[in-house]
Each structure stands twice: as C-alpha cells, then as structure tokens.
Simulated scan of single mutants.
Amino acid sequence: MKAIRAPVIAAGLLLMAIGSAASAAEYQIVVANMKFGSPPDQLHVGDVIIWSNDDIFRHTATARDASFDIDLPAKSEARMTIERVGAVEFYCRFHPTMTGKLNVQP
C-alpha cells in the first residue's frame, strides 16, 4: 500500500505545478514619451511582464526595494517573471521622475 502512495502523491504535486504554471499570464508595460504605461491592476506570482521601451532614450525599470533592475535600451524589450507578493514601487534610474507601482497578489 505504501509503495502506491508515493507515486500518487508525486503525480498530484506534478499536476498542481502544471496547473499553476498554466495559469500564469503575460502583461506588457510600454515606456513611451518618457512615461511608464499603466501596470495591470492585479498581478500574481508567476506572471510575466514584458517591458517595452518605445522611446529613443535608454530607460530602466528599477525596483526601489532592489528586487529587480531591468535595463531597456531604446526600442528594446525585456521579460521579467514576478517572484514575490507585495507592492513594489519602481522608477527609471536615468529619469527618476518616471515612476510606477506593481501590486502583486499570491
């Protein structure tokens, strides 16, 4: 009986992991005209943000808590997977008046 339990438990955990990965969403935040576009209202751990810099200037998306620092040369994109819950304020290191906030749910 015990020999059957381990594979059943492992299969259940695998299905849970696959289900969690399948529910991740992708969102885009566009930088244009020296401004960050509005982030989605609710993000979840595992979601992916695609940062797109449509400006002619280099920008960054830098978390004030140092949890991420995305370099965005002009006309480029970068991907970031959300790794933790909470509110995170971000800014551009080159243009500190450019700011935004991510709200991440579990």
Rank of each mutant, 00 (worst) to 15 (best):
N103K: 11
A25N: 15
M1V: 11
S23Q: 11
I9C: 09
V85S: 12
A78L: 03
L72W: 01
V45E: 02
P96Q: 02
E77R: 02
C92W: 00
P40V: 07
D55Q: 05
R5S: 07
M16W: 12
D54L: 14
V8H: 11
H44C: 00
Q28A: 10
R93I: 09
N103F: 06
A66H: 14
V88W: 00
I4N: 14
P106K: 15
S20L: 13
E83C: 00
N103P: 04
V104Y: 01
A32T: 07
H95W: 06
A78D: 08
Q28K: 15
S20A: 14
E89N: 05
D69V: 01
I50N: 10
G46K: 04
V104T: 07
F36L: 10
A66Y: 14
T99N: 05
S20T: 11
F36H: 07
Q42K: 15
I18F: 06
F57E: 09
V48L: 13
K2P: 00
D47F: 02
M1F: 08
P106Q: 14
P106G: 15
P73F: 08
R84Q: 15
I50E: 12
K2M: 03
T97Q: 14
I18S: 11
K75D: 04
F57V: 08
A61L: 09
Y27K: 05
I29T: 00
P40T: 10
A10W: 05
S52W: 01
V104L: 06
V30A: 04
L13V: 09
T60V: 03
D55E: 07
A61P: 08
L102G: 03
S52F: 00
Y27M: 07
R84M: 12
D47K: 04
H95C: 06
H59E: 10
T99W: 01
H44R: 04
R84E: 12
K35I: 09
G12K: 06
G12M: 14
V30S: 06
P39C: 11
S67I: 05
I50M: 14
L43G: 03
W51K: 03
A3G: 09
D41R: 13
V45K: 05
S76K: 03
G46M: 01
V104D: 03
I9R: 10
A63C: 11
A22I: 04
D71R: 14
F94H: 05
I70K: 00
Y27T: 02
L14K: 11
A63F: 09
G12Q: 08
A61S: 13
L72Q: 02
P39E: 10
A78C: 04
A63S: 15
N103M: 07
G19Y: 03
F36I: 06
A21F: 05
V31L: 13
H44F: 07
G86Q: 11
Y27I: 03
Y91V: 04
V8W: 11
P106Y: 12
G100E: 01
S76F: 01
S20F: 10
T99C: 00
E89V: 00
R93S: 14
P39M: 07
E83Y: 02
